[in-house]
């Protein structure tokens, strides 16, 4: 199937908006840290308002807030990407296996899913993150550990539906081996679900990472958007929230929004029935 991704994304307002935002964040995350100074180096110039040297001023340690915002983008996106991919992979494996195998394997896997789903994820994540003083990698693992069941259930349900679709049955009557059926007929139809799952997980990861940092849980030396907000709260009486709190908050919101917008577009794109007819 030939899809012109670029064209599909750029041809709609949603796609353009999401793409531009995520593009800006991604470029910032990739290149930005090399261009700005160190975000953690303290300086005597504390609590400075924006200036030419410090576009967003400094915090109470005299650290460059703009540099922190730029470095925060890298962390947020890395966690989002890692958690998103790992979650979807886990969900696809477990949900797909349950849907294809059926029988006792299905039962075992689904009870496991229910068990994980029944746990209060937020509380457990907070406890684990606080106890182990988790870094970004640890965070990705923990988010994945509690993030996969939702998508896995949807994947399983979809797999069960797909395996009895006439076109899948038809492929079997051409003598197609199981791997071929999975790859050519089942996975493509799971793709929209996986994309949605990825974007949900990524969104959640951005949110969780920011939230945990805001709560001061985890490694306190890590520079992140959440940690910036947490630091800013103590100086609410100053005008500092304008350049200290608002930028990371907006960055978080914009990143999450971009994931959502792209999610809508990609979902429509992977399903030709939602695609507009392009015939002349």
């Amino acid at each position: 199937m030939h899809i012109d991704y670029q064209r599909a994304v750029t041809s709609s307002f949603q796609g353009r908006t999401g793409g531009i935002i995520l593009g800006v964040v991604a470029v910032t995350a990739l290149c930005g840290p090399a261009l700005v100074g160190s975000p953690a180096t303290p300086s005597p110039a504390v609590l400075q308002p924006p200036s030419a040297a410090y576009p967003l001023g400094t915090n109470d340690f005299g650290q460059d807030l703009f540099a922190q915002l730029v470095h925060g983008a890298r962390l947020s996106l890395a966690v989002a990407l890692g958690a998103g991919l790992l979650t979807v992979l886990t969900a696809a494996l477990i949900g797909g296996a349950a849907g294809l195998a059926r029988g006792w394997a299905d039962t075992v896997l689904m009870r496991l899913t229910d068990a994980v789903l029944a746990m209060p994820a937020m509380v457990v994540i907070i406890v684990i993150a606080a106890y182990f003083q988790l870094g970004p990698a640890g965070l990705v693992l923990v988010i994945t550990l509690f993030g996969w069941p939702g998508t896995a259930r949807v994947v399983r349900a979809q797999t069960l539906t797909l395996r009895n679709k006439p076109h899948v049955l038809a492929a079997r009557t051409f003598g197609a081996p199981g791997g071929y059926v999975l790859y050519r007929h089942i996975l493509p139809d799971l793709a929209p679900i996986l994309v949605v799952g990825f974007l949900q997980s990524a969104r959640r990861a951005v949110f969780l990472e920011a939230g945990l940092a805001f709560l001061g849980i985890g490694d306190p030396t890590i520079v992140s958007w959440g940690a910036m907000i947490q630091g800013a709260l103590r100086f609410f009486y100053l005008d500092a929230w304008l350049w200290w709190l608002l930028p990371p908050a907006l960055a978080i919101a914009a990143t999450i929004l971009s994931f959502t917008l792209l999610g809508n577009i990609l979902e429509a794109l992977l399903d030709p029935r939602l695609r507009e007819v392009r015939h002349a």
């Binding site: 199937m1 679709k165 006439p166 076109h167 049955l169 038809a170 007929h185 139809d189 399903d271 030709p272």
Partner: peptide, 9 residues
């Protein structure tokens, strides 16, 4: 169901 027996992709 002929339409469904052909993958929509």
């Amino acid at each position: 169901d002929p339409a469904a027996s052909i993958s929509h992709r």
